[in-house]
Design a protein around this nucleic acid. Structure first.
Lengths: 256, 256
DNA sequence: TCCAACTGCGATACAGTGTATTGAACGATA
DNA sequence: TATCGTTCAATACACTGTATCGCAGTTGGA
């Protein structure tokens, strides 16, 4: 034996004690990277490096990169606390919507994956189930189609609203922090466009409207949507013209 | 002179008559590629090859790939015919929403870019301006914040709904054409999940609900949203609890 | 105890990406 | 005619996801 002790002996070069790995560790590292620098930062090489492993090692736990992204999405769905079925379906749906929005603010990359493909992970399914549960069984929503129509509408709004909000926030902080810096970057072009006079309402939006509270805008829109769902059986509000929208399929027989 | 004629003389090797190029040609080729095979098919090399040019040549007309994608988005916005301001704002907004949905069905990649970043191209601005114009000046929407709130809500819903619809359609035809083939591909997993009994409403959605007419679902949701906007000043519908949603900022003073 | 098979993992390789750099060929100008 | 500036193709670089290969260590059997 040499005079090395166990203390200064380097890691045995033959087997450098590979950290035990599993899907959760991989997904966690990927999420941490994405939180830090967006989805661009999520590559097999970087995720593996963050875990002290080679890129190909991940393929033992994750079949493809798309699968990794799916797992990340499902993990975020798991973070969203779901309300227990209670009396007030509006409040329950509001809570879920706020949970989605909060998750998207914690993980801005989430919206890039939202709706890109159907989400079928266990947490995603639990999320959908809980959302359906807020309406199921109430007399206002007699058939499963009533429930699904309302839930789909709320979720579509939430997806779109959150995505737009995150996109705007991202661009704001991408062009520096202050509004002045934005004015310097994208300002000249927009100023020129607005100066053409072809966009008077847009000009008023940019100069007169209140841009402060994104949460308030979200709640405003959500209130509109929930109101519309609550009043959907009021015949006074079905579109006056004959053309466009058919009535809600709530009255359509769904078969036995 | 040789005995070659102009007819069989090959293209002069020194200058092989490079096709004149411009942004429209490039954007058109990119859109054609994306229509055929999705956004993955849009690479500088492939777009350039479709135009008989080298990849680097595009940089004379397009600064970066993101700019090319922005141009593609704006081109699609330009395809959407906008309604002239008329009497019925609901019909006008419905038309715009249907235009967006139709564009997304023509160009499925459109939804992948929608909301990814703010759209500031001229056609996009025209689109937003026209959308704002459907509500601006009406007594139901006295301030620009009223208009913006309603328009943002509709657009958020449309974005989310169209995105989800395209995503589902894409997966349907990705796993083969028929429902049976889907059952074979993703079916076992879903069947196992549903068999756990943890997702009773989801099971009913998959087995009992009507899956046929996507357009009807879209119109249903749009009707909900428009109804909610139309009734937004009805105090009976502001959320009962004290907690969640503040009232619409329509009554907030917007300053001088 | 020795050998064989298996397993888990790293290294390498390949085709593809966006884009910076280089250099050559051209038209226009001095 | 000589030089300049522009236009474009070729090359190069860093990086991506992933297939393949070969090595090392462990394990199972004789």
């Amino acid at each position: 034996m040499s005079n090395e002790t166990v203390w200064d002996r380097p890691e045995p070069p033959s087997k450098p004690s590979p950290t035990p790995l599993n899907r959760d560790l991989i997904v966690g590292a990927a999420i941490r990277l994405a939180d830090g620098g967006g989805l661009d930062e999520v590559s097999f090489r970087k995720v593996a490096a963050a875990l002290g492993a080679g890129p190909m090692r991940l393929y033992g736990y994750v079949e493809t990169k798309d699968e990794l992204l799916d797992l990340m999405v499902d993990e975020v769905y798991g973070e969203i606390t779901l309300p227990e079925p209670g009396a007030d379906w509006r409040e329950a749906l509001t809570r879920i919507a706020h949970g989605m929005r909060a998750a998207a603010k914690r993980h801005p990359w989430f919206v890039d994956l939202l709706g890109g493909r159907p989400h079928r992970g266990p947490n995603s399914l639990t999320h959908i189930e809980a959302t359906l549960a807020t309406l199921d069984g109430r007399q206002e929503f007699p058939t499963i189609d009533d429930v699904l129509g309302a839930v789909s509408t709320v979720m579509a709004f939430v997806h779109g609203a959150v995505r737009n909000e995150v996109a705007e926030a991202r661009e704001e902080q991408a062009s520096g922090l202050t509004e002045e810096q934005w004015q310097a970057a994208s300002g000249p072009y927009m100023r020129r466009m607005l100066a053409t006079g072809r966009f008077p309402r847009l000009a008023r939006v940019m100069f007169d409207a209140e841009h402060t509270n994104a949460a308030a805008w979200f709640d405003t829109g959500l209130t509109y949507v929930l109101n519309g769902i609550a009043t959907r059986h009021n015949p006074a509000w079905t579109p006056g013209g004959s053309a466009s929208a058919p009535s809600a399929p709530s009255t359509a027989p769904a078969g036995p």
